[in-house]
Every structure is written in structure tokens, then in C-alpha cells.
Design a protein around this nucleic acid. Structure first.
Lengths: 362, 362
DNA sequence: CGGAATTGCTGAATCGATCCACCAATCATA
DNA sequence: TATGATTGGTGGATCGATTCAGCAATTCCG
């Protein structure tokens, strides 16, 4: 009977295409009810609820009492419709479960909350198609702003789409080439350089970079940093072994296995994340190779890095701070905060945290 | 000039009490514009967008083309206001950054998404006051349902408040005593029993339970399980040493230090989370105590458990599956899915994953 | 004391989408 | 060719909160 192809984008399951399943809400206590109960007009009740307008203290209290008594709940949707303003922020990340993004979200959310915004957090699973779907959906929810960690392999048009939507936005941790956009992320070139330099200073002749997806820009940047350090140390270019994968522990295990199978180990290893390092060490142990036979540096300095055996030397990127900075940048883009810095693109210098795994007496 | 005390709950920063800072949205293309452009009425345009009503294929396509051309974005807020339905779900957790909740959120979000719902994820930081604030705020956003991991120390009234709000809901992983409520969580008594039994079978005489906050019900349940196993093994009650803390690695380190200072180690250790176990092993290593001098079992079986040295024997609670189950339960509470099971309270049997740390030949 | 300013409050239009009640045209059928 | 059914489409009221314009009543002040 009903025609099948609804056009509204965000509804229905992506898989089945069946119509969105919505749920009935319960009957509401509205401002009108409150006003009637308190014996004032809707206007006055509204003034009380927003704190605007001229209302006597007496009336204010009476209305507040009515609200409490009736169990009134403010309807932001309706208010938003009328005022054309919104206080929700769309937050798009690739993966909520990763420790790095987890900590980043904590910082971001906290900063936004403090300014009165609520974060709509959604994960893309690093899939550009799903990411696009999600961003449209968020726009349908009348978000005031957007904070995005772009899925790797995001098309350039993503930038145009977002720019065209005129929603204030900030990109995080993964930089997309194209028009310059507000961006907050770690300085990955510097991070790679820092790690490589440290290993080279301690006599490493060959460096392997393990894990991380090939398409991810942060990985390429770090490798650039590594190569520049190798160059400065007057070592040959192919002193750098490149083993892509992804950012998980399993990937590190896998990379380790492949490295072991390929012949003698490099004497220096840089891992795309601390989790990758954990996996790499597991591979060594599975093969009875002592863990101190390589100097290793992890990345991100997640909570567990200091507890592992060996304790992990790592490049700290301070994800929570990064999230805070992104939050602040978005707030200025929204116009609620005075611009702190004038820079559109803000990169944070990473920090080498020396512990045991690099073998220089931690 | 303006009166200071606005009554609307969710606005403004909790700290400063200053009025909410909202942002202006850009001008909209509305259905009216689309209708005018396509030469039809608003009603027809609406029918096209929802897929309802009787509209000829020709008109349908013309309207869809206009929508694309004008860059129309569906306004869920307005639709929600009119229909009194919503497709957002409020999700309240204590901590996004923990691996356990991270994985749980992945499952929950995925299940809800597949049914056409968008998850509003917010973290309470395990603070009941903030939790209450957050739940009100979510209600102001006209959520269709609520999934909550209650902050530890949540007052009983939380249940009443939520029940009174008549929003379909589900509680997760932490059970609150009081009126029975829809709940999905691991069977913690069984988990504790399982761990203790395994250790006792391998000859342990004293068991320590490390980490986890004292007030958390799951911790008490697990200890009950441990004690029941101890009882079955005809061991003395004070064969169980109780070292509360929290669920982090630092807490495990701390608990380890305290245990080492207190005298000879127990021969069996159960940790409130795998992270706690990581910290405990760090304490051992810092003091030069061999890691195989205790049999240890962790909890949750997070991703890193199989990579650590020693590989962690752990009680797997399958957080992602738990999230999925919670999602499904909420969907039936919302009436979009046929009830699968009739049970209000659904506990999932945990699973002992034997690896190296319990010392029985992993 | 009289005009001006201020205080306290209200009526009514409005935001964007929905959907009931209706209408006009077309088609089927006896 | 009536009668009824079906198809394709429209008008207008409505959801809940906001806010401008306006109106009494009170206060201010030369």
C-alpha cells in the first residue's frame, strides 16, 4: 500500500531500509499547565523558566512551586524550534572503545558540558559511508556544532559538505587535506621524530614502525618524522621498516610474528599505539625472544603503559587535553568564547615519556 | 538587571550557574520552501519525506529532486514536537574511557542504531548528583528511552524518579535494590564463585579480592560468590582478604603495595578488573617478587588480557554482548520489538577464560 | 501635582512538520 | 449512465516555548 522509498535520510535502518521505529512519549506537563496552575500567563511562566523578562520575585516563586508540583519538564525541542538556537553538539569519533578516544571524549565532553552544551556522541567504526549517514542524522537533530574525528579514507568532499552546512565545527586528531579547517591534533611529525631520535641516540641502526592503517594521515606524518630523524643521523633510508596493520593489540601481535619470520629483528621499534606494543611483546614472548632484545617506543601513553612489563616508553599525546582544546576551539567557533589563539590549526607538541622499554635505564 | 535564578534545570554550568550559552543556527530550508520549489503543498512534501500518504511516483521524484537541490535538512525537533514521538535514546554511563564500558557502548549503540535510534551518550563520572542533573537534561531533550549504568551510591529514589518519568528504561551492570526494574548485567555472584573455585581447586589456601569500590554492588556480589566457594571448600571465612580500591590500574598497584607491606602474600588473588591485575603485577615487579608466586584471576577479559605477561586468566563478562542485550531489552520496553524473554532481570553467566596467570599450565 | 519612566504582566504570532478532514478527478462496475 | 470506490492532492489546526508590542498600575521627580 504505502510507497516504499522515503527520502528522509536519517530514518530507518541502513541495512533493511524499513521505516524508523519511533516510540510514543507520555503525556506532558507543558508551560500552559504550569501557568494555569500558578494563575499567570504562559508568557510569565516562560520568563520564569528562562530567567528573562520582568517578573516579581513573588510570582517567580509561585510559578517555580507549580513547576515542581506538576513535575514540569522543559521541552528543548520546542524552544529550539522557536528560537532557532540549539545547545547540542554532535561528536563523531571512529571508535568509542579505544583508550585514546575514550580519554579524548572525556576532555571534550567535560569542556562542552561546562559551557552548557550536551554532546551527542556517535561512532562511525571508521567507515566513511556510515560517517556521512551519521553526520546527516546529527544535522537533522539541529546540532549547534560538530566535532569530528574523520574516518580514515574520508573523501575530500566531506570538508565541503560540512563547510556548506554552515555548522560551526572542529576536526580532531586526523587532518584532512583541502581547505584549511579548524583543527586540533597532535604534532605527529614531531612525535615520530622524537621517538626515532631517541632510539638513534641510543645506537639503533634499523627502525621498524609497526601497526596503524596505511591510509591514516597521522601514520604517514609520524613516518615522515621518523625518516627525517634517520636522515639527520646520516643513516640509509631503508633503515626504516614499515609494517602497517591497524591500531590494536592483535595487529601488534601479527606484526611481531611477521617481523620474526622475516629474519633478524630491527634493533629499534616504534609502535603506532601502546596497544600495538603490547601485542608485539606478546609475539616476542611466544617465540621465547627476550623483551630487551629491542628498544621499543609506544604511542599515546595510555594508562596501562606504566604498568606493562617492560614499562613502556611512549610518546604522550595527552588525549584528554586534546579533547579539552578541541572543545574550547569549538566554543569559540560557536561564538560563546573569546578566541584564545588566532590559529585555525592547532597542533600540540607530543612528549617523550622515558620508561623501561627503550632500554636506556628506566 | 535580569533576575538571576532561572528555574530551568539543565541550563548553565553547574559550577558557575551562568545562563546557558546557546548558538545561533543558520537559516533553514524548510518543507515549505521545498513544496514551493516543487509546486506542491506542504502536506505533499511531508508525505514524500516520511514515505506516508498517497503521492504519485512522479510527484515523489519531483519533490525529492527539489529537496536535493535546495539542500533540505529534515528537522526532527519540529517533527518530534508535532508527533509527540522521539527517536533518541539517552545513555548514561559512569565513565566512557574504561575499556569495559567502551565495549558495552559499542554493542548498545549498534543495536539501537540498527533499530533507527540515535544514542545520546553522557558520562556521570560516577557522581550521583551529576547523574541526576544529566538525567533531567536528557529528559528535556525529549528522549524516547533511557539506558543507565547507575553511579555507585545512587539513592534509591533514582528508581522512583525514573519510574515516575514514565520513560522506558533499562539499567545495566549495576543493580539497584528496590522495585524490580528492567536490568541487564553479568551474574557477579557466579563470577566470583567461578574464580574462587578455580583457585581453590588448584590448592590456594588464602584468597585476596583486590580493587573495586566498596559501595559497588557488583563487588559485593562477587565477594559473596567467593565466600560461598570458600565455604564449599570447607575453608575458614577469613581465608578471604578484602582490599577495596577502585577499578583502575593505579588502584591495583596500590593494593599490591599494601598487600606486600602487610606480610606474606596470599596464594590466590582475584582482581576486580583486568586493569587492577596489571597494576598488581607492577607492584610485584617493583619489589622483585616473581609473578608466578601467586595464582591470579582478573575480571572482564578486556582486549589486553591475552597480551599481558603473564597472560591473564580472567572472568569474561562479554561487555559488548551485554550492551547488545541491554539494547534489545530497551527496544522491547519501547514496544518496537516483541519481548524475547519474559524476564525483567536478565543476568548473563560469566565465563572463566583460563590463561597463564592462574598458574595451571596455560 | 502632572507628565515621564519603570515595573509587572498578558495576547497573539511564530518556528517546522504532521495529519485529519475534505475535495476533485479518474476508474470500475452493474 | 448512475453509483461507488480509489487515487492524488490540499487547507488549516496543532505540538510547546518564545518574544514583540502593548497595557495598567505604580513610582519618580522637578
Amino acid at each position: 500500500m504505502t510507497d516504499t522509498n522515503a527520502v528522509r535520510s536519517g530514518t530507518g535502518t541502513p541495512e533493511t531500509g524499513c521505516p524508523a521505529t519511533l516510540n510514543f512519549m507520555t503525556e506532558h506537563v507543558t508551560l500552559k499547565d504550569v501557568a494555569a496552575h500558578a494563575g499567570v500567563s504562559r508568557t510569565t511562566a516562560s520568563y520564569v523558566v528562562t530567567g528573562e523578562g520582568r517578573v516579581s520575585q513573588k510570582t517567580r516563586e509561585r510559578v517555580a512551586a507549580s513547576m515542581k508540583e506538576l513535575g514540569y519538564v522543559y521541552n528543548r525541542g520546542a524552544a529550539s524550534l522557536r528560537t532557532q538556537r540549539s545547545s547540542t553538539i554532535g561528536v563523531v569519533v571512529t571508535n568509542i572503545a579505544s583508550p585514546f578516544f575514550g580519554e579524548l571524549l572525556v576532555g571534550l565532553e567535560d569542556e562542552l558540558r561546562a559551557a552548557g552544551f550536551l554532546s551527542l556522541i556517535v561512532a562511525t567504526g571508521d567507515d566513511p559511508a556510515r560517517q556521512e549517514q551519521i553526520i546527516t542524522e546529527l544535522r537533522e537533530h539541529q546540532i549547534a556544532g560538530l566535532a569530528v574525528v574523520p574516518a580514515s579514507g574520508s573523501p575530500k568532499e566531506l570538508l565541503d559538505t560540512i563547510a556548506a552546512s554552515r555548522v560551526p565545527h572542529v576536526f580532531m586528531t586526523r587532518y584532512l587535506e583541502g581547505e584549511p579547517v579548524p583543527y586540533v591534533g597532535p604534532d605527529d611529525v614531531e612525535g615520530g621524530r622524537l621517538a626515532a631520535q631517541h632510539l638513534l641516540e641510543h645506537g639503533c641502526q634499523t627502525l621498524a614502525y609497526l601497526g596503524g592503517r596505511d591510509v591514516v594521515l597521522s601514520r604517514r606524518d609520524r613516518l615522515d618524522g621518523v625518516r627525517s630523524a634517520v636522515h639527520s643521523a646520516r643513516l640509509d633510508k631503508d633503515a626504516v621498516i614499515d609494517v602497517p596493520g591497524d591500531a590494536t593489540g592483535e595487529s601488534g601481535l601479527d606484526a611481531g610474528e611477521r617481523l620474526l619470520a622475516a629474519g633478524p629483528l630491527p634493533d629499534g621499534v616504534i609502535c603506532h599505539s601502546d596497544s600495538v606494543a603490547f601485542g608485539f611483546y606478546r609475539a616476542l614472548r611466544n617465540h621465547g625472544v627476550p623483551t630487551d632484545s629491542v628498544r621499543l617506543i609506544g604511542y599515546d601513553d595510555i594508562r596501562g603503559a606504566a604498568l606493562f612489563e617492560p614499562t613502556l616508553t611512549s610518546i604522550a599525546t595527552h588525549p584528554e587535553e586534546l579533547g579539552r582544546a578541541a572543545g574550547r576551539k569549538l566554543l569559540t567557533a560557536l561564538g560563546v568564547t573569546e578566541p584564545a589563539g588566532t590559529e585555525l590549526i592547532e597542533t600540540f607538541a607530543p612528549e617523550l615519556v622515558v620508561r623501561g622499554s627503550c632500554g636506556c635505564g628506566g
